Simulated assay, not measured.
Amino acid sequence: MYATLVLSILALLSGFGMRYWINRRKFYRRSSLGAEGFSSYEKSVFISFLERTGKWIAYILIVFGLLFLWSYSRENKDSKEMIQKEVSYVHV
């Protein structure tokens, strides 16, 4: 039960962390005029591809983190309802 919560927190933190890191790299690569500076065309294409792929992976991690969090809340709610039903049967 707590594994779902841990997985959701890890997925969310890593997803937001990856997005932050990629955007920070992109920001510091810009010149004062706003153009990104690369030493070669090949480097530009390769880094842009990696950053685009990394952003998609980050989005997927964030979605999985939210799904794990939702799953944890459903498990927690179901277990509380089950305990409440057992307590009501004992008192009857």
Rank of each mutant, 00 (worst) to 15 (best):
I47R: 08
A35F: 15
G37H: 12
G34I: 07
G65C: 08
V45G: 00
S31I: 02
R52K: 14
I57H: 04
R25A: 06
G15A: 03
Y59N: 15
Y89W: 04
L5V: 03
F16P: 03
F68V: 01
H91S: 12
H91E: 13
Y20R: 01
W70I: 11
A35C: 03
L67G: 06
F27Q: 14
L12Y: 02
S40A: 08
Y2L: 10
V87H: 07
E42S: 13
S14L: 05
L5G: 05
M18T: 15
A3G: 06
W21Q: 09
R30F: 02
K85S: 10
R52M: 09
F16G: 05
Y20T: 04
L12C: 03
L13A: 12
G65S: 11
S79A: 13
L5Q: 06
E36Q: 10
S44I: 00
Y28D: 08
F64Y: 10
N76V: 06
K80H: 08
G65Y: 04
L67N: 05
R74L: 14
F38C: 02
K43M: 13
S71T: 11
G34M: 04
E86R: 15
F68W: 06
S31C: 05
I60S: 15
N76I: 01
Y2N: 11
S73W: 08
I57C: 10
L69M: 13
V92E: 10
S14P: 00
F46W: 12
M18L: 14
H91V: 14
L61T: 01
T4L: 13
R30L: 15
L12N: 01
L5P: 00
G65A: 10
V90N: 01
F49I: 03
I57L: 15
G37D: 10
S31D: 15
Y28P: 00
S71P: 00
W21D: 11
E75D: 12
F49W: 08
Y59V: 09
V63A: 15
S14T: 14
S88I: 11
A11G: 02
L5Y: 05
E51R: 14
K55R: 14
A11Y: 05
L50T: 03
K26W: 11
I60W: 07
K77R: 09
T53L: 15
L61H: 03
L69I: 02
S32G: 12
Q84H: 11
G54E: 04
L5H: 01
L12S: 03
G17L: 03
Y41A: 09
G37Y: 07
E86S: 11
R25V: 00
M18I: 15
L10I: 14
A58G: 08
E75Y: 09
L67V: 13
G65W: 06
K85W: 05
F16K: 03
L69H: 06
Y28M: 11
K77Q: 09
V90F: 14
L13G: 07
M82E: 15
H91M: 08
R19F: 06
F49K: 10
G37T: 13
V63T: 15
R19P: 00
F46Q: 08
